[in-house]
């Protein structure tokens, strides 16, 4: 048998084997989050490379080694889930390098990181001043996680005491002009609804490249024909504007009328509307 057939057949077999091993070991193996997976990942790869090209050696040995590595990694993962102590040993523990805004030199030395490396890691997190950091940890995989001091953290609606509505994940209901029934069901809608919405937008199904439904049941589409302008959903801001208009109208009526009873009625209702507007506005903005 010529060598090249040999290589092709071996490559294909090993590709399949590697695929199965990684599949069994799961996502953790691919991300190489822990120390052990990192080592196993490198070794499995190089064994596979060796087996594919090393023609004289026995293929069975290589496969055996791969299986052993796969099995041991699997076992280590399994025990690590059961025992915290073991997982600390096998997968490594994270090391605190900055605490209360102070760099812990001893821990840094223990991990053999220089100050330059630490600042490089901080810079990758867009932190240029170590004084901004309250707490930072070196993860087993060598990445740095940093908690900024409260005053340096990005502003969130919570800081402003704003009530924000919770949004569900958008569902992609049209792909390449095909309706994805499963996501449509997740969005709690049916095909009939979708056809109606598309008609409202004035587009045909086969012209839609991508269509998504957000948590308010509004649909946004991207068309194949990029020359066509599709209206963006503006129902909610529009509704808010209408509400405000009606509220203003009621106030005007209350000023205009001479009948005391109606004046009171208009006033009461305009206040009621204002309250509703305040309550609705987080949901209707954007």
């Amino acid at each position: 048998m010529p060598d090249w057939i040999f290589i092709i057949s071996r490559s294909l077999t090993l590709l399949g084997l590697l695929f199965i091993i990684t599949k069994v070991l799961g996502k953790k193996q691919i991300s190489e989050l822990s120390f052990f997976e990192y080592v196993a990942g490198i070794t499995i790869g190089s064994i596979a490379g060796e087996v594919v090209t090393g023609l004289e050696s026995n293929m069975g040995h290589g496969v055996l080694a791969l299986l052993v590595f796969g099995f041991v990694t699997f076992l280590v993962n399994y025990i690590a889930i059961k025992s915290k102590k073991f997982s600390d040993f096998a997968e490594g523990k994270s090391t605190v390098v900055i605490k209360d805004g102070k760099i812990l030199e001893e821990n840094l030395k223990k991990e053999r990181y220089t100050i330059d490396e630490l600042s490089a890691l901080l810079r990758q997190k867009d932190i240029f001043k170590f004084a901004d950091v309250e707490f930072a940890v070196l993860e087993p995989r060598g990445t740095l996680s940093a908690l900024l001091k409260k005053e340096n953290q990005p502003l969130t609606p919570k800081d402003l005491q704003m009530k924000m509505p919770n949004e569900k994940e958008p569902q992609t209901v049209i792909m390449d002009g095909n309706i994805i029934d499963e996501s449509l069901r997740c969005a709690g809608k049916g095909r009939g609804w979708l056809y109606t919405e598309l008609e409202k937008l004035g587009v045909t199904l086969d012209n839609v490249f991508l269509g998504q439904v957000d948590s308010y049941g509004e649909i946004t589409v991207d068309l194949y024909n990029d020359k066509i302008q599709v209206p963006t959903p503006a129902q909610r801001p529009l509704l808010l504007a209408t509400l405000k208009k009606v509220q203003a109208d009621l106030e005007i009526f209350s000023l205009e009328t001479e009948c005391e009873k109606s004046k009171a009625m208009y006033k009461k209702n305009s206040i009621k509307l204002q309250e509703t507007i305040d309550k609705l506005s987080p949901y209707l903005n954007g």
Partner: peptide, 10 residues
């Protein structure tokens, strides 16, 4: 909107 929203609060 009440019928079409997915979020219970909304």
């Amino acid at each position: 909107f009440a019928l079409n929203s997915l979020d219970k609060d909304a």
